[in-house]
Design a binder for these strands. Structure first.
Lengths: 208, 208
DNA sequence: TGCTTTCTGGACTTGCTGGTCCATTTTCCA
DNA sequence: TGGAAAATGGACCAGCAAGTCCAGAAAGCA
């Protein structure tokens, strides 16, 4: 997209303003939802003028939304670190679980990042790519953690790691979706806990 | 809502038109998504005039969307019958699984009903109520099926049925969400299959 | 049949929102 | 320092979509 090409000609001040716009827009979007947010809302929040918005995002709202989607996608994985990258013991899985639950409970119905990409992701091809890549990385990290458990002899080698990771990721996503629409985190907890339990039951047959 | 109060004064023709509007609107919304659908789109699709729309839905778009949400919510559970109501053997669970997967694979990225309520459900209180009730009933049926397995001695009585049902529902929802945004049903299948597997592993300790 | 109520068509209004434009200020850098 | 390029402010425009209104057709009903 044109964003990178623009970074070349961006001054220090320009980069700061652009970042301010993206962050501010992300905030407004999380609060109000994509469908109810106007450029003027973003303008007000970020203390910028119309011309600035179009200066940094020549293709207008579409491009800005895409930049926010990417920003949020990155943030989602970062927020789970370092736990998500170190899933090599039962304790670390538990810590990761707690971080995820706490994070999404805090955001509550304030349409978290998950909502953002779900909304955008339906039609626009660019947004779909961002979502797909996010899910790929997310699932990859979960699978990596499961293989670490296998390597440590905590989980049977027979476990279909990719499938288990896909199921866990789906449960997590669904739990978040339900949390967003009902305000209740029961499903999120149940999904993750059951997913981890699934691993726990897949103890190696040799060990006992 | 005003809808029921209106049914009193509706003639046969009136009821038919109202139903046509709701069904047509549901169709358009599934195709285009909430954010991209205008009243004129619905008007065109249903062969109605502006005044008809506001005659049957005095509160305008909001009320119409709510009616569609309720319509879709009912349809979701109906489409899973009779399987969802008869989950008393492993075979029936498998049949239900196949129906769900097939149904959502068919709808593909054509924003299925799930998307609809997710979109609407973020802010509007009425929509939130519809979603909550749908999930409650859905989970109730799953839990009922699990209890049937317990009654038939196929699953240990110790299984926390409500928690397992919540986890399965979350996985299903997340799987559908991922299917919608990526076009891939792998996660949906993995989630449901893993959920059922979870039950299979909870065999009664007495039987063996 | 004749009167009332409901139903329908479609022109019209109104407000909002994304997007354009240009003048002005600030920053860069040679 | 001075000119070019970037950054900023904000007035302005155009289109669109929700919602209004009223006149006329079709049903219901006694």
């Amino acid at each position: 997209m044109g964003a990178e090409a623009m970074d070349d000609t961006l001054t220090r001040k320009g980069r700061a303003t652009r970042a301010r716009i993206v962050e501010g827009a992300a905030h407004v979007l999380r609060e109000q939802g994509v469908g109810f947010t106007t450029l003027d809302d973003i303008r007000g929040r970020t203390g910028t003028s119309k011309s600035q918005l179009f200066h940094y995002f020549p293709d207008g709202k579409e491009e800005l939304l895409l930049a926010v989607a990417q920003f949020e996608a990155d943030r989602i994985l970062e927020d789970q670190q370092p736990h998500l990258g170190q899933l090599d013991s039962w304790e670390s899985w538990q810590r990761w679980r707690d971080v995820v639950v706490e994070r999404y409970e805090l955001q509550g119905d304030h349409c978290p990042s998950g909502a953002l990409f779900l909304h955008v992701g339906q039609a626009r091809p660019g947004a779909r790519a961002i979502v797909t890549e996010l899910l790929r990385q997310w699932q990859g990290q979960l699978a990596r953690g499961m293989r670490a458990l296998q390597a440590n002899g905590l989980v049977a080698a027979e476990l279909d790691v990719e499938r288990a990771a896909a199921a866990l990721l789906a449960g997590l996503q669904g739990g978040v979706a339900i949390l967003m629409s009902t305000g209740d985190s029961t499903h999120l907890k149940a999904a993750i806990d059951t997913g981890i339990e699934h691993l726990r039951r897949a103890r190696p047959t040799t060990a006992a």
